[in-house]
Structures are given as structure tokens and as C-alpha cells.
Amino acid sequence: MMKKTLIFILCLLIVLWFCGPVLLILIAALTPSAEYYDLARLVPTKLTLTHLESLFVRLNGWKATLISIQTALLSIVISFAIGLPAAYVLTRYVFKGKNLFRLTILLTRSFPVIIIGVPLVTLYLRIGIADSVLGVSLAHSSMILPFIIIISSSILGGISVEYEEAGMVFGLTRFRSFLRITLPLALPGFAAAAIYAFVLSWNEVFISAIINLTNRTLPAHILNTAMTSPDYFKFAAGTVMALPAMIFIFFTRKYLMSMWGISLK
């Protein structure tokens, strides 16, 4: 009984500690400004959407949100297009330097992305993709690609090679066997990986803020404007950024351990 009560109290504390701030910023974002600045008003009497509306309309939040979504989607496409073949090779072929390749990819994962920002600005100017969604997406891929390669090779590795080989023996080419047999089996895992990748790109701020000056992603936009905006806009922005990420993570919770565990090693 004692033990049960103790566990319950600890659980309560954990829920408060981790959910509290999220709930509070949500409330703050919905509190009318007059009530927010009233120190005597702890709990708002009514909630309003005006801050969210002005964030999106007046402060160009819509544009930034759209750019964020485009950037994230494009990063996912780029990373999968490049990373999937590499992941396939890692699980299906034996070759010299395979471990070295895997190690390089793992190290890239912890490579400080800060370093690549500045040179990319000049590179992009030269090749004409400065201040574009494509530019940021390509840069974001530097942190998403290693993740996609590692997680995809782990997903593919979990699918018996014999399924694919059976396809080959029963009349398919290697490529078609991959498409028809392995890919459908890997799809749920890939979807989770894509969502995770989306969150990575959606949350990234340094690169986005350095590379794009006008076409900024939401976090970069907020970083730049929030400082000079009233508090309630900051809260609206923080909420808008937090919610999609939380919802996405919720849908992939089954993969929580494998995704984060792997991506961090």
C-alpha cells in the first residue's frame, strides 16, 4: 500500500513537471492581453483566439508556417531519396569498409550543424538557391539523412532477407522484389521515421535563421520577431510550434524507444 501511494505521488509529480509548462503556455496564449498583464489575475476569466490570429495574420506567421511545412516535407523527400538506397546496402550487402561507413554516418549525427550554416550561405548565393526553401531543406538533411539511414537500415534489418529472396526466386528482379515485398513491410516504420524527421526539421532554428533572411521557417521567424513582440505573441508562437510536434510524436509513440534510442547512439 505504502509503495503504491509513493508511486502514485511520484507519477503525479512527473505529470505536473512535464505537462505543466505545456498547459501553461497554452493558457497564456489564450489569455486576453488585459488579463495577462493583470498581476492579480492568476486564472483567466475567458479565453481568446486573438493572439493566435494576429500571430498568423499580422506577424506573417502563416507564411512562416507554410515554409516550415514545405521545408520539413522537402527534407524528408531528399533524405529518403538519398538515404534509403544507402540503408538498403547496409542491410543487404557485405562490402569492405561497411563498418567505417556506418561509423561515419553515426558521427555525422552528432556533428555540430552550426558549422555548416555559414559556408552554405555563400554556396547558395553562388548557385542561386539563397533564401529558398530548397536551401534550408538541403541543410536540414544533414541532420535528417544520417538518422534516416540508421533507422531505415534498422527497419530493413528487421525484415527477413528471405522474404525478398523468395520474391527473387519466384520471378521478381531485386528491385521489384524490394518494391513489392520489402517496402510494404517496412512502410509503418518508414512512416514513423518520416514523422520524426518532420519534427527534427520543424524544430530546427539555427540553420534556418542563418540561411534564410526573408523566407524564414516558423522557429526562425519567431526567434527574430518574438524578441520585439508583446509577450502574448510569444506564447501564441510557442504553442503553435509545440502542438503539431506533440501530436506527431503521439502517433509514433510505439516507435519512441527505437527511434530515439537509435538516433542518439
Binding site: F18, V22, G238, M246, I249
Partner: peptide, 21 residues
């Protein structure tokens, strides 16, 4: 899952949350 919530959040929104407090 509750403990995992901050995993989904960017540093920017985490900072704004603590600013709201």
C-alpha cells in the same frame, strides 16, 4: 509518454514555455 513530451519540442518553444512561467 508523458516524460517523452519535451522530446517533441524545439528549444525555442521550450524557452517560450519557461518564459510564460
Amino acid at each position: 509518454y508523458i516524460i517523452a513530451i519535451p522530446l517533441a519540442l524545439s528549444d525555442v518553444s521550450a524557452a517560450l514555455m519557461s518564459y510564460s512561467i
